[in-house]
């Protein structure tokens, strides 16, 4: 005779931690101009080591940091691309790497592209593009201020938004917010 407890099959061990739920990803959908642009990009940048992909409605061109000025120069001066307008230059901190994004737009052809490059956070050196678009000047100073990306060759990398002598890079994820004490 067995006790009811013994009949019961052994409980499966509960997982010690929950599985992370799947995070949905925003789908990529290029418009007509984007598709046409993505088609000619491999031809234009044939001599350089670049990867072409898409994120939402933007054509993404990933390049090595040292290639960025050459890529930007071609993007601006090649008549098929004609990216005369640097929409934005932003730095994103992905903790293990810093990503520098150059959002480009052509005012005449009305197509757009993002040039991306990644650098390690402890040796964040990217050559400057302030010689390609003069508007890159302040964006690079801002990126240097807030994220500590050193734009090599920039004529004047003094602090722009922060004051002289500010310690640290407040844009980075490792820079913590002030914690407020309740009283």
């Amino acid at each position: 005779m067995t006790t009811p407890q013994e009949k019961k099959p052994a409980k499966p061990e509960r997982a010690t931690h929950r599985r992370e739920p799947e995070v949905p990803v925003a789908p990529a959908a290029l418009d007509e101009r984007g598709k046409a642009l993505a088609a000619i990009l491999p031809q234009v940048f044939s001599g350089l080591d670049v990867q072409i992909s898409a994120a939402m409605d933007e054509v993404v061109l990933a390049a090595k940091p040292q290639d960025v000025p050459a890529v930007c120069r071609i993007a601006k001066e090649d008549p098929r691309l004609d990216f005369d307008y640097l929409r934005c230059l932003s730095v994103v901190d992905y903790i293990e790497r810093l990503e520098v994004d150059y959002h480009l737009f052509s005012l005449d052809k009305r197509h757009k592209m993002v040039v991306k490059t990644s650098v390690p956070p402890d040796a964040a050196n990217v050559p400057t593009v302030s010689g390609v678009w003069r508007g890159a000047d302040w964006y690079e100073r801002e990126g240097h201020d807030l994220f500590g990306v050193v734009f090599d060759g920039h004529p004047n990398l003094r602090p722009l938004l922060l004051y002289e002598g500010f310690e640290g890079h407040p844009g980075r994820k490792s820079f913590l917010f002030h914690e407020y004490d309740e009283w």
Binding site: M56, R87, V92
Partner: peptide, 23 residues
Amino acid sequence: PPKGEAYVRTESPRGDFAVFLVS
């Protein structure tokens, strides 16, 4: 919002006001 990055341009009174949102 799902994982991804969106760049949106709008015409504000001063010009191209854009937001680059990474989620």
